[in-house]
Design a protein around this nucleic acid. Structure first.
Length: 272
DNA sequence: TTCCAGGCGTATC
DNA sequence: GATACGCATGGA
């Protein structure tokens, strides 16, 4: 991977990558858009490391980042070594997916933290994206960082009332207690057969099929996971009553991201 | 006011 | 196993 170190910034040319598509599409909730005239920029966190990143066409700048952090953390986080051009060519064998890839072609599947995804997607249930972000923001502000399982394991629904997370507070606590006790172990789940991983995750109160699928896709990079929410359900009923086409085999989750972004932002996909 | 949001637990059949 | 309903909160 070739990049340029300029003072404390990393400059790099990257194809198939767009910050709006990737950071504001509902896979991560801690990135904030920085308003700027001529370019797109975001500020966010991963593993308590903050980053500001800007985009001007296919030119990206990672601010205040060492080459070491870039190589050890951000290449992996942004999935920069995966060829999304190839993935899109494969998915474009299907007409509807082709349209979605074209529309939201800058999406990359982030390699996020398992625990943070677990809590984030528990919060996401029966909720909308702005409010999910608000709850997670209050959570991080309260603990001065994204809380560890041990931080949350000793809380009660009452002590978490500042979150205004509603009925989800008790689910957050159950996830925290099972994680803190070792009953739920990220590394172990990541290495499981996917059906076993689903079952294990669903032993947590408030984790059903959809949340489990999101945790596996976004927090464990299991690209064969396919979260079906209200939006994707509409897509499936309209275009894929018999399931996804063969070209999406083993990358169902990536196809899902393109479809989700498209259906949410546009009125409809083309007729099949 | 009512409906809805990246669903799930529970009751009931 | 399928289906119906309530659930906290806040924006449209």
């Amino acid at each position: 991977m070739t990049y340029k170190v300029n003072n404390n910034n990393i400059e790099i040319i990257l194809p198939d990558f767009d910050l709006d598509d990737t950071l504001d599409c509902g896979q991560a909730f801690r990135w904030e858009k920085i308003e700027s005239e001529h370019q797109s920029a975001y500020k966010g966190m991963f593993l308590e490391r903050s980053l500001t990143i800007s985009q001007d066409g296919d030119k990206f700048i990672f601010y205040n980042t060492s080459a070491e952090d870039f190589e050890k953390i951000w290449i992996k986080y942004f999935d920069l070594e995966t060829d999304y051009g190839k993935i899109k060519i494969k998915l474009s064998e299907d007409d509807v997916l082709s349209k979605a890839c074209e529309y939201a072609g800058g999406i990359r599947l982030l390699n996020q933290d398992f625990w943070e995804c677990l809590i984030s997607f528990i919060i996401s249930q029966n909720n909308n994206i702005p409010r999910i972000k608000g709850i997670i923001s209050r959570l991080c502000e309260h603990y001065d960082h994204f809380p560890q399982a041990s931080d949350l394991a000793s809380e009660t629904p009452e002590s978490l009332s500042f979150l205004r997370a509603g009925f989800r507070a008790k689910y957050i606590i159950d996830a925290a207690r099972k994680t803190a006790s070792g009953e739920i172990n990220a590394d172990s789940i990541k290495n499981m057969d996917i059906d076993d991983a689903r079952k294990k995750l669903m032993t947590i109160k408030g984790v059903g099929p959809k949340v489990a699928e999101c945790v596996l896709l976004f927090g464990a990079h299991r690209t064969e996971a396919f979260p079906i929410d209200v939006w994707i359900k509409r897509v499936m009923e309209k275009y894929y009553p018999d399931g996804l086409p063969q070209c999406a085999k083993n990358i169902e989750g990536i196809a899902q991201q393109y479809l989700f972004h498209y259906i949410r932002t546009c009125d409809s996909l083309p007729e099949k």
